[in-house]
C-alpha cells in the first residue's frame, strides 16, 4: 500500500499520466486471492468427486468442470456483493485465477471417485 500510493501522490502535481496508475492495498488483494484459490480448489475437488460418482467419462466430465467453475465464479461474485472492482483489480482475478490448478485436482479426484464407485 505504502510504496505505490506514495509515489502516485507525490507525482500527482508533476504529471497527469501517473494519475492513471491504480492504487490499492496489495496485502488485502493478496488475502482476497488466497480466498479465491481456497474456494476454487475445494470446489474442484468436490466437483471431481461428484463427477466420479455420477459416472461421467471423457468430454462430459470436462464440460462438468467448466460448469462447476462457472457456478463457483458466480458464487464468488455474489460474495463480493457484485462490486468486483472494490475487491480485485481486474475481472480475470475472479473469473480465471486458479482454473488450471483446479483442473488438475478435478481430474485426480474424478478418476479416484470413478475408480472406487464404478470399477472396484
Amino acid at each position: 500500500m505504502a510504496g505505490r500510493s506514495d509515489s502516485g501522490s507525490s507525482e500527482k502535481k508533476s504529471s497527469e499520466a501517473t494519475n492513471d496508475v491504480p492504487t490499492f492495498s496489495a496485502e488485502n488483494l493478496q488475502s482476497n486471492m488466497k480466498i479465491i484459490y481456497y474456494s476454487r480448489t475445494f470446489m474442484s475437488i468436490i466437483g471431481g468427486v461428484v463427477a466420479g460418482i455420477l459416472g461421467f467419462t471423457g468430454l462430459t466430465g470436462f464440460i462438468f468442470y467448466f460448469l462447476v467453475m462457472a457456478i463457483t465464479s458466480v458464487g464468488l461474485i455474489a460474495k463480493a456483493k457484485f462490486s468486483v472492482n472494490s475487491y480485485f483489480d481486474s475481472w480475470n482475478r475472479i473469473l480465471l485465477d486458479g482454473f488450471m490448478g483446479g483442473l488438475m485436482s478435478f481430474v485426480l479426484f474424478w478418476t479416484f471417485a470413478y475408480d472406487i464407485v464404478h470399477i472396484f
Binding site: 492504487t23 492495498s25 482476497n32 474456494s39 475445494f42 464468488l76
Partner: peptide, 15 residues
C-alpha cells in the same frame, strides 16, 4: 456454501 463462507471475507483494496 462451505467453500464460499469458510475462507473468510473479502477485504476492500481501494485506499
Amino acid at each position: 456454501w462451505a467453500a464460499l463462507s469458510v475462507p473468510g471475507k473479502f477485504l476492500p483494496i481501494n485506499p
